[in-house]
Design a protein around this nucleic acid. Sequence first.
RNA 1: AUAGCAAGCUGGUCUAUCGCUGUUAUCUUUUUUGAUGGCAGAGGAAAGUCCGGGCAGCUCAGGACACUGUGCUUCCUAACAGGAAGGUACUCGUGAGGGUAGAGUAGUGUAACAGAAAAUAACCGUCCCGAUUUAUCGGGAUAAGGGUGAAAAGGUGGGGUAAGAGCUCACCGGUAUUCCGGGUAACCGGAGUAGCCGUACACCUUGCAGGCUGCAAGACCAUGUAUAUCACAAUCCCAUUUUAUGGGUAGGGUUGUCCGCUCUGUUUUCUUGUAAAAGUUGUGAGGGGUAGGUCGCUAAAGAUUAUGGGUGACCAUAAUCGAAGAUAAAUGAUAGGCACCGCUGCGUGCGGAACAGGAUCCGGCUUAUAAGCUUGCUAUUUUU
Length: 131
Amino acid sequence: MASSGFSFPKKEKLCSQKVIETLFASGHSFIKYPLRVVFMIQEDQTDTPVKVLVSVSKRRFKRAYKRNLLKRRIREAYRLNKYTLFPLLEKNSVNIAIAFVYLPTEILPFSEIEKTAKATLESLITKLSLE
RNA sequence: AUAGCAAGCUGGUCUAUCGCUGUUAUCUUUUUUGAUGGCAGAGGAAAGUCCGGGCAGCUCAGGACACUGUGCUUCCUAACAGGAAGGUACUCGUGAGGGUAGAGUAGUGUAACAGAAAAUAACCGUCCCGAUUUAUCGGGAUAAGGGUGAAAAGGUGGGGUAAGAGCUCACCGGUAUUCCGGGUAACCGGAGUAGCCGUACACCUUGCAGGCUGCAAGACCAUGUAUAUCACAAUCCCAUUUUAUGGGUAGGGUUGUCCGCUCUGUUUUCUUGUAAAAGUUGUGAGGGGUAGGUCGCUAAAGAUUAUGGGUGACCAUAAUCGAAGAUAAAUGAUAGGCACCGCUGCGUGCGGAACAGGAUCCGGCUUAUAAGCUUGCUAUUUUU
């Protein structure tokens, strides 16, 4: 693990196709505009507490460079704020998978995305601590 | 100077903090892995997927037809529907220049609307003859004139005629063809011959090219679960209420061990056995192969520079360089400078900065694109 705590290595990314299918089929979801969050507690023991997926719809953004830009902004916002989420999970030794889906049809600046990312993670923490 | 035409080029950059992908060195780790440092990390169109090729698989005796594409000439190229140079017709522009078209003709067909008529043309008109209802009617001749149309039967003049007509003659234009000259050729120039003379499209004929599918191609490794196939072992005993129940016993599962719980010990044939066959259970081997992974994968018809050849596309030689390789898919975020553009009070300040993101790789084409630069040329105006 990196020393800074802000790193985002590849094993924290959600890559398995089967896990993604079950996540979208049976995961819990809520909307904190402009983001829709889908999350699921995983049974299998993995080496990281969280696996994350970022998605921007091809139907809403036809040009690839716009999708890339938004995915980078969301990923960056998550990376800079994920330290709020980790202690709870490590304390309870729970693994979760999260998907962030971008909803609007226009490109929002980084400051707004970061603001909603913080709020999203807070509400995620409260939901998880209830369970 | 302004406006424009053609060809070509550029497509911001630096610092700090945090972070991503690949690679390399050192350290660490049982291999995996992890840490730190170094290096590299999107475009002129990466796009559309419209052509062509490399590469891979499938098929594979050879050929013809069909089908599809293409079509002025010569050249370039690995190849092309691409490019270069040249040439013809029509057309737009004052001009620099731009656009469109194209193989062949022996034959066949079609030509909306308008118009009398769209190729054996007679509506009006003109002329002749006949009739008489004499400001009319009938028969015939005529493509000079009218209007329609994308296109109307070569043009002008003389002769000719009842009036007219390439009917005939001269000149001009076109087409076909013969000869001479130029050009590799398309074609051009000159001289002659033929009254031969509308345009477009399609069919048809013909030269050339094309086997099909695409990196999700294709090659390899392979966990778990289930399983084809093969080998070995087991498939027993007693009682009763006999397609069943109970007990013993053997084996398996559960467990660190025991108990307990649970599963299996079935069917058919006869020569009635330590039998055979099928089935079931267990153990081992094992093929194909899902998730996943590795290769394919980036050194290439390569880039830059110089010299030489060519009008040019391009080619040859030499030197130097070695240049992304991801896979729910890396090159980002934040802050601040510099440079650029606009507004401006010319100190500063504020705002802007296009089109757009690799996915097997190359050569083209097409489309999108802020701002800027270079070279050559054109028109107009002014000054010297």
